[in-house]
């Protein structure tokens, strides 16, 4: 499998990365190189092998349901670009 320049641009858009035409071509080459590696891996017979969800063979650590974090809004908002009435302000988004 190899990617078309359009697919590269779509992936870049989904990741909100701006790429020029030239960069899209270089990236296409890099990504197709990675796909070659993936194809090699996919050629391996993995029947009977359980899919791995994590590199460490451990299970999830859990915490008790208790509130441990207080209100630190002032500290967090001191480094925010823009706030008002306790809200973080961002460029207008409407769906």
């Amino acid at each position: 499998m190899s990617l078309t320049p359009e697919q590269v641009k779509r992936i870049a858009h989904l990741a909100r990365i701006e790429v020029s035409e030239a960069e899209a071509l270089t990236t296409q080459g890099h990504l197709n190189g990675i796909f070659e590696l993936i194809e090699q891996m996919q050629a391996v017979d993995t029947r009977g092998v359980e899919p791995m969800a994590h590199a460490q063979d451990l299970s999830q650590r859990l915490r008790e349901d208790a509130v441990s974090e207080g209100d630190r809004r002032a500290a967090y908002q001191a480094v925010a670009p823009e706030t008002e009435a306790g809200l973080y302000l961002v460029p207008k988004v409407i769906e």
Partner: peptide, 26 residues
């Protein structure tokens, strides 16, 4: 609650934070 008074570093996705699963939710 007043806006953002119950949003901690993990909820804000500040660098370096990690999630720890709540047992009660499970």
């Amino acid at each position: 609650a007043a806006p953002n008074t119950q949003a901690c570093a993990v909820d804000l996705a500040l660098p370096g934070v990690l999630p720890v699963l709540n047992k009660k939710a499970v």
